[in-house]
Design a binder for these strands. Structure first.
Length: 408
DNA sequence: TCTGGGGTCCTAGGACCC
DNA sequence: TCTGGGGTCCTAGGACCC
């Protein structure tokens, strides 16, 4: 029986799309990104170019490279085409970024054949129908499938068969592990731990003292390919944010206010398009150094309003920058604690729990609050999320809490 | 001499409640 | 009145991933 978890990953995705769209770029080194390399084609990687690297450094390594600015909307279109093909293999899919996804084919092997056959079929279809190179790893855990797909690149397939997992895993450097970056790798090296096999020999307790309890336990388990995380379909983003680098930096409050408004507008649009709202607004400011300061605030009820995000963002940015004479080199805003807007928002006049006037032309007069909730549910198939009582000063937040308790 | 924009997850202290 | 434990939420910071 073959393992059933696939990790599928488009190779040098942005650069491959550019080569597909413009045939004159094929077989040539291509860099996507004018300031920083977001993606480098394999022809460019052969010269040592890696993402993310300042584009001018990349051009020193590879002067003949063609630099293009990204076409992000096209990337999304290609991503969707590929994911549609992948969905034919199994409904259990977890897309983790624009160019990669986990697929559990345990439920479809009886229809479609062995996992390695399914992986070959997906690769062939993506190659023929979309025209992009695609690598797939097949293994018994998400962790190992991800490492396998990295070993499969470019444009390959690696299956880690049952029983050979540790043989495959232990000779690899700790940097190959998902979750080990430069800082953690540096700490491990100081402990004399270089390979995943070395890591496996260290008791998890002594890892925890340097890396923290969660990271220590997780790394030790992963070194033995113990990874219970299932492939989870239908996961939704937990936050929506936007950020902007400001070159040498801005100090003028008016100019910063313009940046904040632009970011809030982008976030507000995206939230509303997704039909989502959030309660926590976080502002991040970077200073030369690089020093990063964040300030956040949680609202009593969720919002997707550009104005609300911008106003709160401006206050938080001021708090983040006060007492600092340095210019701000990056501003980021994000909205988290997201909820889905599958609710009806109504303004009602309420007196002692009875509705005196409804904010829309609905027949809600003289009903109790509980009845109102039922009527709204019946008519819209959704819950009443917020309401205000004008007579009592209209404190929607308090009412919201009360109603949230009732309807849950 | 840091250089992008989009995210996730973990930690740790404090407030607050039971 | 004092002491303790457990749980949740908020805030700030940091590491990591593509």
């Amino acid at each position: 029986m073959e393992p059933t978890i696939l990790h599928a990953d488009l190779d040098a995705f942005y650069a491959s799309v550019e080569q597909l769209l413009d045939p004159t770029l094929r077989n040539r080194p291509v860099l996507v990104g004018e300031g920083v390399v977001l993606a480098a084609s394999y022809e460019a990687r052969a010269h040592g170019v890696r993402a993310p690297m300042p584009t001018r450094d990349a051009l020193k390594l590879c002067p003949e490279a063609v630099v293009v600015n990204g076409h992000f909307e096209r990337y999304l279109e290609f991503s969707e085409q590929v994911m549609t093909i992948v969905e034919a293999a199994s409904p259990v899919i977890e897309q983790i970024s624009i160019d990669e996804a986990f697929i559990d084919v345990a439920g479809t092997v009886h229809l479609l054949g062995q996992p390695s056959e399914i992986a070959r079929e997906i690769r062939t279809r993506v190659r023929e129908e979309v025209g992009l190179p695609f690598s797939v790893g097949v293994a018994s855990t998400k962790f190992l499938a991800k490492i396998a797909s990295a070993r499969a690149k470019p444009d390959g397939l690696v299956v880690v068969v049952a029983g050979s997992e540790l043989e495959f895993l232990h000779p690899l450097g700790v940097e190959a592990m998902w979750g080990v970056g430069t800082v953690t790798a540096g700490r491990l090296h100081q402990l004399g731990i270089c390979t995943i096999g070395d890591l496996a020999q260290v008791p998890s307790g002594s890892l925890s003292s340097t890396l923290g309890p969660a990271a220590g336990r997780a790394l030790h388990a992963l070194a033995w390919n113990r990874d219970p995380r299932p492939v989870r379909s239908g996961r939704r983003a937990g936050s929506v944010g936007s950020q902007q680098a400001l070159g040498r930096g801005l100090a003028d409050p008016d100019e910063l206010a313009v940046v904040v408004l632009g970011l809030a507008d982008r976030i507000g649009r995206r939230l509303r398009k997704k039909g989502r709202s959030g309660t926590t607004v976080t502002v991040r400011a970077r200073f030369p150094g690089p020093r990063v300061i964040s300030r956040s605030h949680t609202l009593p009820s969720p919002t997707s309003s550009t104005a609300a995000i911008a106003n709160l963002g401006a206050v938080l940015l001021q708090r983040a920058t006060e007492g600092s004479a340095e210019p701000v080199t990056l501003v980021g805003i994000s909205v988290s604690n997201l909820t889905t807007d599958d609710f009806v928002q109504l303004e009602l006049d309420i007196d002692e729990g009875n509705v005196l006037r409804a904010g829309s032309a609905m027949d809600l007069k003289h009903r109790s609050l509980d009845e109102t909730v039922d009527v709204v549910r019946e008519r819209f198939g959704r819950d009443l999320l917020t309401f205000g009582s004008k007579q009592k000063g209209g404190s929607a937040p308090d009412s919201f809490r009360e109603l949230a308790e009732r309807s849950s």
